[in-house]
Design a protein around this nucleic acid. Sequence first.
DNA 1: TATAAAAACTAATAAACGTTAGTTTTGCAG
DNA 2: CTGCAAAACTAACGTTTATTAGTTTTTATA
Lengths: 196, 196
Amino acid sequence: MAKIKPGKNASKKDVITQKAAALFKAKGFSSASMRELAEAVGVEAPSLYNHIGSKSELLQAICFKVANAFTIYLETTENTAGNASSMLENIIRFHIRMMLNNFDEVYVANHEWKHLKEPYLSNFLVQRRGYEKRLIALMESGIDTGEFKTGNPFVAVLTILSAVRGLEFWQQHKKNISSQVLEDDMTNHLLHGIIK
Amino acid sequence: MAKIKPGKNASKKDVITQKAAALFKAKGFSSASMRELAEAVGVEAPSLYNHIGSKSELLQAICFKVANAFTIYLETTENTAGNASSMLENIIRFHIRMMLNNFDEVYVANHEWKHLKEPYLSNFLVQRRGYEKRLIALMESGIDTGEFKTGNPFVAVLTILSAVRGLEFWQQHKKNISSQVLEDDMTNHLLHGIIK
DNA sequence: TATAAAAACTAATAAACGTTAGTTTTGCAG
DNA sequence: CTGCAAAACTAACGTTTATTAGTTTTTATA
């Protein structure tokens, strides 16, 4: 019978992982079955195990791919010159673009991480907590230099991260707003507020 | 054997629903089993069915209780005098307090609604979409009166709703920040921005 | 074209699931 | 104390699940 399409650059494992992200997003990790995933890939369920180790392994791959992308960008940003305002703006815009360009995987990392098994669950949470702490430090430095208003830096980080995460509700309105308008409006709202 | 504690004002069905909200939040609707719920209630699984109709029915009760609370508050706000700014602030603060005071149920309504069965799923989405539209109308009226900056009103609503939703990440930091500080800081950030 | 590895297939297993049936126990009204 | 309804129990059902075993087909190499 026909094999899974080898693709140009993507291995069969990559194809499966990508289809898994779409399926986990649509139905949730627990509700998504390997039989459904196999159907999406165009194969019988047991054939998947020629390429992957387990269902959990797929979730791990998705979650850490996303987490690592954010961590690497933050490290890069920290190592480049610039004031806190521009760094924060860059990070906000990166979050927005990640959300728009890697929607399935980011959604799954945001919503289904709790189904990770140990020790991956703990590792994921540690990495996430570290990311938050570095963002909080950035907020604090901006407050110290007088760029940002005083206030609890944790609340500010929470507000920004959560607002960007909410872009997942936006996909059904894609036709009405361009990505650029969305990115600009949301960044502006978070940095400068809505009231004149 | 001992019956479920009748409670003062809560029926046994209410007790089960409340425990279900906590369990669905912790493990997700699909991963949570009726046997686990029964254990949390202090009973064997089949005994639950003397009080409830099905697992799905529990999710329906939780989701629509939350949706109705938000809808009713919005209607009340719309029917009271006030400019768009104060109305928006009231709504933001109500969202924040709902998140803090009814965390389990709000979390479940936000995360597990996709496991509702028809026709409840469609009804829930229609109600949610209607709520969004009324908030967008409020934003537009504020832009018209010059209270709010120009910009896409949908993006503004999205930003605000999502930021407030993110309070679910806050519970692990409860000790460090008071509810009032959190509510004030977040409301202020969303209305006036973070940059001086 | 022959051969070996890769990857598909069918069949099956053990576990967990929501739920039903049937029975026993509990708690209250008379 | 008796009797009845409410609510607990045990046992079991039919499904669905992820995964393994064993076999056949496909693909690539030589």
